[in-house]
C-alpha cells in the first residue's frame, strides 16, 4: 500500500525506536507443520517443528518420529524421515489440477489437510528499477493473469542467494485478466544491508501459484503474525491444516527467473 508507506515515512521522521523489555507470558507449545508438494520433481517435503516461548532462542529443532503420508487419487505415499523433523520423498511430483491430502500422526494426535495444485501462470519477465517511493532498487515482476479464474501468487526473492524475509503475495481480485507489473517493495529496517539490492547483485525470483486456502494462510500471516503490523488485532494465520497446528500444506507450481542488477 502506497498510502501506508507514506504514513510510515512520516512516522519514522518524527518517531524514535528503542528495543525494550516486555514481560510476555509463556504458553504451551504447538506443533508447526509446513508441507509442500510442487510440480518440480523431487520436491515433496514436510517439516515438523514446535513453537517456543518468546524469550527463548531462535533454534527450532525438528520433531522426529511422526508418520507422514500424502494421498492422491487413492494412492497413498509415505514420506520417510530423511533428517530430524524432515519428511520427504523424491518419488512424488505434483500435477496441476490434482488434489493432494496430507496426513500427519505424531504420538496419538492426527493432523490433516488437502490442497489442490492450480494451473501454472507464466512469469513473463522481471526487471530492477529504483522504486517510485524510495531511492532503493526493487524488482518488478510481470505476468499475464488468466482471465475468468481466480489466481493466487506468492513471490520469494533471493539476493545473492539470501532469501528476503518479506512475504509478497497477491490475488487477482482487482487484476483479473490484466498484465500485472508488481513491484516487490519492502522496507528494510534491519542493520542487514545485504537485503537491499545493489548494482552487481544477482537476484532470483521464485514465483509460486497456490490455491485460495494457502493464499489465505500467507495473507493472514503477513497481516497478523509478523510482529510488525499496524493491525489492532494481531492474530495467528488461518491454517489449512486441521487439528490445531501452526503451518500450512500447499500443492503449488514453482518457476524461477534470475537477473544480474546493472
Amino acid at each position: 500500500m502506497r498510502f501506508a508507506c507514506i504514513c510510515f515515512i512520516l512516522i519514522s521522521l518524527a518517531g524514535c525506536q528503542k528495543v525494550i523489555n516486555v514481560n510476555l507470558n509463556n504458553t504451551s507449545t504447538k506443533y508447526v507443520i509446513v508441507g509442500k508438494i510442487t510440480d518440480q520433481p523431487g520436491e515433496c517435503q514436510v517439516y515438523i517443528t514446535r513453537t517456543k516461548n518468546f524469550s527463548e532462542d531462535n533454534q527450532f529443532p525438528g520433531v522426529s518420529g511422526a508418520t507422514v503420508t500424502v494421498e492422491n487419487n487413492g494412492i497413498v505415499t509415505s514420506l520417510p524421515e530423511t533428517g530430524t523433523g524432515v519428511y520427504s520423498t523424491g518419488s512424488l511430483t505434483g500435477k496441476p489440477g490434482q488434489t493432494y491430502a496430507l496426513t500427519v500422526h505424531i504420538g496419538n494426535e492426527t493432523f490433516s489437510s488437502i490442497s489442490t495444485m492450480p494451473q501454472p501462470v507464466n512469469l513473463d519477465s522481471i526487471y530492477v528499477k529504483t522504486g517510485a517511493l524510495s531511492n532503493k532498487k526493487y524488482v518488478t515482476v510481470v505476468y499475464k493473469d488468466p482471465p475468468g479464474i481466480a489466481n493466487y501468487y506468492h513471490f520469494i526473492q533471493y539476493v545473492n542467494d539470501h532469501m528476503e524475509p518479506t512475504i509478497f503475495v497477491s490475488d487477482d481480485e482487482f487484476t483479473d485478466g490484466r498484465t500485472v507489473k508488481s513491484e516487490l517493495n519492502f522496507s528494510n529496517d534491519t542493520n542487514n544491508s545485504a537485503r537491499d539490492i545493489k548494482s552487481g547483485d544477482s537476484v532470483r525470483i521464485e514465483m509460486i501459484c497456490n490455491d485460495s486456502a494457502v493464499y489465505k494462510y500467507w495473507y493472514t500471516l503477513y497481516n497478523g503474525a509478523t510482529g510488525a503490523s499496524q493491525s489492532a488485532s494481531p492474530s495467528n494465520p488461518v491454517s489449512n491444516i486441521s487439528g490445531g497446528v501452526m503451518g500450512y500444506f500447499s500443492a503449488q507450481t514453482v518457476q524461477w527467473k534470475g537477473i544480474r542488477v546493472e
Binding site: 513453537t51 518468546f54 527450532f60
Partner: peptide, 17 residues
C-alpha cells in the same frame, strides 16, 4: 494483543498469539 510465543516457517520467525 502481544505474542506469547514464536515459530519458524520457511526459514523465517513468526509470532504466536
Amino acid at each position: 494483543t502481544f505474542p506469547s510465543g514464536k515459530y519458524i516457517v520457511d526459514g523465517n520467525v513468526y509470532f504466536l498469539y
